[in-house]
Computed example of a mutant assay.
Amino acid sequence: MTCTGLSRTVTALNDEWSTLADEPAPLSWRAVPALPLGTLGDVLAGVRSAPDTVLLALLGLQAEGDALAGRVVVQAMLPKMILMAVRDDGADVDDYLAALWVRVATYPVARRPRRVAANLALDTLKSVKATRPRAVMALPGGPVPDPLADATTVLDAGVRLGAIDGLTRRTLEVVYVDGRSSSAAGAVLGMSAETVRWRCSKGVRALRAVAHELTDLLAG
């Protein structure tokens, strides 16, 4: 991971958070006993003092469509994402943050109420590792089913909902399903690596914004 990539991403998130931190938490959050009262900065501080309780409450709100709650979770996890990216020669912080957003949007609150931060970090790491090219394994009964096959279903659903367009869907598929790096994906798609990363980031945010609708559509 390059220092430039780290600086741009983290600076943008922290600049946004510096504006958000002093904002009062939404009134609707007062109905959630686990969340501290006060500003969004107070809620973030609450994550440090009672991580499972506060993170789980925020993820529950995110599951109900509250993107701001998910944003607080991402800010809480940001230092860990930076550390993981620094230790990874094959991915940068953008890759980790994109994967984290998906984990935040789809975290199974009822099923995994403990060690929430560790679960998010491990799930994110697995997602990043899974996007890398891997050898195709074969068994006597046929090829091993692709563990990322469901990703294409999600992408198709995103297009059907109008959350992403065809080019964004294709970009996400080339990177997250085919396992190509930003540079390699750019060569396939006829765009720069920077444009690939931008389109992936934008596409993931768009899918995160309609996570509830995606869940309903896929369930039906």
Score class of each variant (00 low, 15 high):
Glu64Gly: 14
Gly60Lys: 00
Ala76Ser: 15
Leu100Asp: 06
Leu44Pro: 10
Ser18Trp: 10
Pro108Asn: 09
Glu23Thr: 07
Ala98Gln: 09
Val54Lys: 00
Leu56Arg: 08
Tyr107Ile: 02
Asp66Gly: 03
Leu27Glu: 15
Asn14Leu: 13
Arg111Tyr: 06
Asp42Lys: 05
Leu97Glu: 03
Asp94Pro: 00
Val32Tyr: 05
Gly70Ile: 00
Gln75Ile: 02
Ala69Phe: 03
Ala98Phe: 00
Trp101Asp: 03
Glu16Leu: 14
Ile82Phe: 07
Leu37Thr: 15
Leu68Asp: 12
Val104Thr: 11
Asp89Leu: 13
Asp95Gly: 06
Gln62Asp: 05
Gly46Gln: 07
Arg103Glu: 15
Leu40Gly: 07
Ala105Arg: 02
Gly41Thr: 14
Val93Phe: 06
Ala99Leu: 10
Ala76Gly: 15
Ala63Cys: 03
Ala91His: 08
Leu97Val: 12
Trp29Val: 06
Ala31Asn: 14
Leu59Arg: 01
Gly41Val: 07
Val32Gln: 04
Val72Arg: 01
Asp88Trp: 09
Val102Leu: 11
Ser28Met: 08
Ala45Ile: 09
Val93Gly: 03
Ala69His: 05
Asp88Ser: 11
Ala85Pro: 09
Gln75Val: 03
Gly60Phe: 04
Ser49Val: 13
Gly65Cys: 01
Val93Trp: 01
Val47Cys: 14
Gly60Asn: 08
Asp94Glu: 13
Thr106Asp: 15
Leu59Ala: 11
Thr19His: 15
Arg30Val: 13
Tyr107His: 08
Ala45Pro: 11
Pro24His: 06
Ala110His: 11
Val102Trp: 04
Gly38Cys: 12
Asn14Asp: 15
Ala31Cys: 12
Met81Asn: 08
Leu61Met: 02
Ser28Glu: 12
Ala99Pro: 06
Gln75Asp: 01
Leu59Thr: 04
Asp88Gly: 10
Ala91Asn: 06
Met77Asn: 07
Met84Val: 03
Val47Gln: 09
Leu58Phe: 03
Ala105Leu: 05
Lys80Leu: 14
Val102Phe: 08
Asp22Ala: 14
Arg87Gln: 13
Leu58Pro: 07
Val32Phe: 04
Met77Ala: 15
Thr39Gly: 01
Leu35Tyr: 09
Ala69Trp: 03
Ala105Asp: 13
Val72Ser: 00
Glu64His: 12
Arg71Phe: 00
Asp22Tyr: 00
Val86Met: 12
Trp101Glu: 08
Asp95His: 11
Met81Ala: 14
Ile82Gly: 01
Ala45Gln: 09
Gly41Glu: 03
Gln62Arg: 04
Gly65Glu: 07
Asp94His: 10
Asp94Ala: 12
Asp15Gly: 08
Gly65Phe: 07
Ala50Pro: 09
Leu27Cys: 01
Pro24Lys: 01
Arg111Ile: 12
Arg87Val: 10
Asn14Ser: 12
Ser28Pro: 09
Ser18Arg: 15
Leu20Thr: 10
Leu37Met: 13
Met81Cys: 15
Ser49Asp: 14
Val72Gly: 02
Ala67Arg: 09
Met81His: 07
Val104Trp: 05
Leu78Lys: 04
Tyr96His: 13
Met84Phe: 05
Asp92Thr: 11
Leu37Lys: 12
Val47Ile: 15
Val93Tyr: 03
